[in-house]
Design a protein around this nucleic acid. Structure first.
Lengths: 145, 145
DNA sequence: ATAATCCCTATTATTTCAATAGGATTAGTA
DNA sequence: TACTAATCCTATTGAAATAATAGGGATTAT
């Protein structure tokens, strides 16, 4: 499995936040704050687990938090400017299809020169990244994909 | 990680077999038999682990075995007719990027209808399969990729 | 003050991965 | 026939990653 529940939940969270922001009709950007409790219930995810995922997204700059009562999270930028690739990079780390890809590409693998398979894995990695970089949260939300 | 060492080693093995068959200049198809011991040494893989991987490829119909002394394995069909996708399907099982993909696609997920992300994961899965289905052992061997 | 929320560190249960172990079976060869 | 080198088969294990869980601390609106 390339993408664990962590990345899957993170994406669900981003979509949920985008959805809730959309629903809010008023002009106050602060009122689009959504609590993890609400997301956890809607998406059926453990609240405590979700907290650790939200922390990653927050540190990664994809969401912003408001602490204290009535606090919560909101998207740090418009849904059409956030790609699935960004969300995965922050929560899953590398999406390299094989483990040696990162080190081999860095020239740390002594066999990289003669390795027949490396170029193929690199190409696959590029294909995946290209696809995920082309899909935004907005695309998913509006069922454009 | 999408592809474990099992799939990686399996591909290395297929390439090794193709390479050795190429090297054999005689007409006797049986003489292209390559022992796992030789592959394990060349590819630096544990022999015992390789045995279990070769068993999968054998049952999957990608290689053929000859038992007893001077036995070994050989490709079941020409290298240009074996794709990386086949090798991965046999050794890794599903390459579904997220765990729910297989069950959701089978209509076993009660939420699949309203699931916004399912189409995206399905598309990613298709993109990966399309790429790997387009690469043959021969392509890799001749550095065409 | 209180309650609701985010924030932080540590621990644990489960599963998967990667390999190891120990033989049984088969076939070529002296 | 005995010997050897190979595939074949089942079970076990050690290590790592995954997916939570636990217990609180800090912050803020009311």
């Amino acid at each position: 499995m390339m993408i664990s529940t962590k990345g899957k939940y993170a994406l669900q969270t981003m979509i949920d936040l985008a959805q809730q922001a959309q629903m809010c009709a008023c002009e106050d950007t602060e009122c689009t704050c959504v609590s993890l409790k609400a997301i956890a219930e809607r998406q059926n995810i453990s609240l405590k687990y979700l907290e650790s995922i939200a922390a990653l997204l927050n540190r990664g700059g994809l969401i912003k938090s408001t602490r204290g009562k009535d606090g919560g999270y909101r998207l740090a930028k418009p849904a059409e400017e956030i790609t699935v690739a960004e969300v995965m990079a922050i929560t899953e780390g590398s999406l390299a299809p094989v483990s040696c890809l990162d080190t081999c590409s860095d020239g740390q693998c002594v066999h990289a020169d003669g390795c027949l398979t490396l170029p193929m894995w690199q190409k696959l990695d590029a294909v995946i990244d290209e696809f995920l970089s082309g899909v935004t949260i907005r695309d998913i939300l509006e069922r454009r994909i």
